[in-house]
Design a binder for these strands. Structure first.
Lengths: 197, 197
DNA sequence: TGATGACGCGAGTATTTGCTCGTATTCAAT
DNA sequence: ATTGAATACGAGCAAATACTCGCGTCATCA
């Protein structure tokens, strides 16, 4: 941020810009994400935009941050709730929460996962993965009987990456002949089979 | 292709351009992939370049195609070889082949997987995934005792996506505390556990 | 109420870059 | 050897676009 908006008017404008950034991204795609277009969509002049954002990337970063933050928040919350639980049901609930979190805004997910160069996303996505991975590793370490795999950290890494890939692709591709319920069952089977040998 | 090179000289030039495209991509990154830069790297003028390629994208497409073609070829070949085999060893060999194929050119893989917008890759990667997925589905359908999962096609989809994600991330991130051998064992455990319940 | 500074504007600049076109050079068939 | 086609050149055009600057407006204080 180049400077902090002090008056209510300008704080509103900053919000309008971020929100316009999101909708330009969704409606016009990443390639069309230009400062002028964002400014127009926000009903603001380019000059005003540059009063609060140092460059184009800064706007994009805020949009990306907010998205992954929201996903991470809901997955981690659900996982933390279930961390006392045990067995298939806890796994199912967590997997469901992951799918639900990605289903929440498919249009933006598509941009994040397919149009944006992954490098732009990587650190933010890393935060999500690390957060979930750590929780899972703690769970596994605390319950040796839940897993026959040697290293909790590695086990968590394997599960998080696999499930993330499956959930993302399911949301984006909506494979025919694979209903949501069955997807969840497959993911649960993958997890339980891997853990139990 | 705008026109086919007829003389040996020009065929060589086309090859030089493609090869220069690859190395610009690897050395300078996707953002720096400009026609002028590719031309310079190839020791060729922009005008010459446009005699055989209609636009920038066409050059990029050839580079991308060649890469995934090569990966698909080696994975599919290995999988086809093992399709008569059975049990853990066949799985291990196939998984190993996947990791090996991605390890072959990590620098280019990084560009493909991280710098390029996924959309640019999707169709080519889809070919790889479909090819491997179909083979796996055929194998599973032919050996009901190998899997307790209901649908071979869905089972194959789950496995291909998971393994691809794991192998790619391992090659690119080289997670500490996860040696190649152990990665393979984790992947095998994931597959066998999922199939056998 | 008037003055100070935050705010907002939008035409304009500076740069990048995909691509073309007129010209020069080389090849290969006769 | 000649000639015409194929090839190669590279300066430069046109368009896109990230970003700036100087000026007018409004909010918030004394």
């Amino acid at each position: 941020m180049r400077k902090a908006p002090r008056q209510a008017r300008s704080r509103e404008m900053v919000e309008r810009i971020i929100s316009a950034g999101r909708s330009v991204l969704v409606k016009d795609g990443y390639d069309a994400f230009s400062t002028n277009r964002v400014a127009t969509a926000a009903g603001v002049s380019p000059g005003s935009l540059y009063q609060y954002f140092p460059n184009k990337t800064a706007i994009l970063d805020v949009v990306i941050d907010r998205y992954w933050e929201q996903v991470a928040e809901s997955v981690a919350a659900s996982l933390a709730d279930r961390i006392g639980g045990t067995g298939t049901n806890a796994v199912r609930d967590t997997v469901d929460a992951l799918v639900a979190a990605l289903e929440a805004d498919p249009a933006l997910l598509r941009v994040m996962a397919e149009e944006l160069p992954v490098a732009r996303n990587k650190s933010r996505r890393g935060v999500l993965e690390k957060r979930v991975s750590d929780l899972a590793a703690i769970y596994l370490a605390a319950r040796p009987e839940a897993s026959r795999r040697p290293s909790p950290a590695i086990t968590a890494w394997v599960l998080v990456l696999s499930l993330e890939a499956l959930a993302t692709r399911w949301v984006l591709d909506q494979p025919p002949n694979l209903e949501r319920d069955q997807l969840i069952e497959e993911m649960v089977a993958l997890v339980m089979g891997y853990l139990q040998g």
